[in-house]
């Protein structure tokens, strides 16, 4: 082995680390399935970070292991190591390389953030005369702006995700109002007056969720969409996504909201356009249960409140069972 020169070793290790990192970045299998167009972009970002991370991890851990083995104290050797106190070019190198890497990563993540609509959350084409979308004007069900004596705060901004910058004036195909409360999500379709405990969306449609919270902070998360946005009392937040795969995916509350936070789960159902229309028509035909839903949940225990709706709202049966355990 001794005849192999050090640069050759470095080269071999470098190539091996690069190949291994590239391979792992594509095959880590850590993410759940992708079900939205946004997920594709976010996964690409994650994959590239995995590649970078794996390479750095291997190099660093390799260096540590090499040190541990190569530079261990030999038996009977009580001498010190060489008195090297620094190496300016080397230090400059390992300051500059990470700086370049993180700036590159920052730019890339900025680009992804822009493409998933992070720059223009809940944007409305106010300046263009024609009001297409109505995110700001749609009254949020249970929004606190109505309940107070009149809002003291003049602020009216929407936080979260909107359309990507290039089509920021495009209206969403479907708007759904999402209300978080202890411990359920309520989905209201302004068009057709549908209220449901599950989110139904057609595949390929540009869906905008107008998110609000009734009591405490919740957080709307669909792992398969890779999107999350807090539902904040007194603030308007929004998410915008295009589902690209039919199926049922969990909707999870990701912000601690009380004792049964862990059971605040429901699902989003991505339909084919025809199925969605069928569902929509069927629900419009039914009498919406608006009045009952509007009843203040605070007077009832979560269990009492939720159990009558477990069927039609699709609230998880385990959840009810969990509640009963109290």
């Amino acid at each position: 082995m001794k005849q192999i020169p050090a640069p050759l070793w470095t080269l071999t290790i470098g190539v091996a680390v690069t190949l291994l990192s590239l391979w792992y970045g594509q095959n880590h299998g850590l993410m759940p399935e992708q079900a939205s167009e946004q997920a594709v972009l976010i996964d690409e970002l994650f994959d590239s970070m995995v590649v970078m991370g794996t390479a750095l991890f291997l190099v660093m851990e390799g260096a540590i292991l090499y040190c541990m083995i190569q530079f261990r104290q030999r038996k009977g050797d009580e001498t010190d190591g060489p008195a090297i106190e620094g190496n300016l070019p080397l230090e400059a190198f390992w300051t500059a390389i990470p700086t370049i890497l993180v700036i590159g990563l920052g730019l890339y993540s900025f680009q992804v953030f822009q493409e998933i609509g992070g720059i223009t959350p809940g944007h409305v084409a106010h300046d263009h005369g024609t009001m297409i979308a109505q995110a700001d004007d749609t009254p949020l069900p249970g929004g606190l702006s109505e309940s107070g004596k009149g809002p003291l705060i003049a602020e009216n901004s929407v936080f979260g995700l909107g359309a990507p910058l290039e089509n920021e004036d495009t209206a969403a195909d479907l708007q759904v109002n999402v209300t978080g409360m202890q411990y359920a999500w309520i989905f209201t379709y302004p068009e057709g007056n549908i209220i449901d405990g599950e989110l139904h969306v057609p595949i390929g449609a540009d869906v905008q969720l107008n998110i609000s919270a009734k009591d405490v902070i919740h957080s709307f998360w669909v792992p398969q969409f890779r999107l999350k946005q807090d539902a904040i009392p007194g603030k308007k937040t929004a998410l915008r996504f295009i589902a690209n795969k039919e199926g049922n995916y969990p909707v999870v509350c990701a912000e601690l909201c009380g004792g049964y936070h862990g059971s605040m789960r429901t699902q989003v159902i991505v339909h084919s356009p025809e199925d969605y229309q069928a569902w929509h028509d069927k629900r419009v035909a039914q009498t919406p249960a608006v009045e009952t839903i509007a009843k203040a949940p605070a007077d009832l225990s979560a269990e009492e409140y939720l159990s009558p709706y477990s069927q039609e709202m699709g609230v998880n049966r385990d959840l009810i069972a969990n509640l009963s355990l109290k």
């Binding site: 972009l41 976010i42 970002l45 994650f46 970070m49 990563l105 920052g106 993540s109 992804v112 953030f113 998933i116 992070g118 995700l161 957080s219 998360w221 792992p223 890779r226 999107l227 999350k228 946005q229 990701a254 912000e255």
Partner: peptide, 10 residues
């Protein structure tokens, strides 16, 4: 990174 944090936050 904000974009990825949307998925893994909390």
């Amino acid at each position: 990174t904000a974009a990825f944090d949307l998925h893994v936050h909390d």
